[in-house]
Amino acid sequence: MKEVEVRVPKELWPRRGGWKGKVVNILVEPGDKINKGDVVAEIEIEKAILEIESPYSGVVEKVLCRENETIEPGSPLITVRVLE
């Protein structure tokens, strides 16, 4: 079983980097079983609230961000132990 990070995707408006947001809601905690496509965190930017999906199925190992923390593309959100 490998452990992977779920990050704020760098593919979000990929060539218009430099935007920042704020974590407004972390929807998982260590030990939670999640499926690919589940929303794990919500990020507020000026324009909207972004619901970030997990690209992996597995078990949440660690939460790497805090509510109200400033984040940008690439910022780590959680780690997931991927179920093979």
Partner: peptide, 21 residues
């Protein structure tokens, strides 16, 4: 008031990203 947007990055998304870049 802010709208909620679901962020999902699929294969087609990655393809457009790569191609345009």
């Amino acid at each position: 008031i802010k709208y909620r947007i679901r962020v999902r990055i699929d294969d087609k998304y990655i393809r457009i990203n790569r191609l345009t870049a």
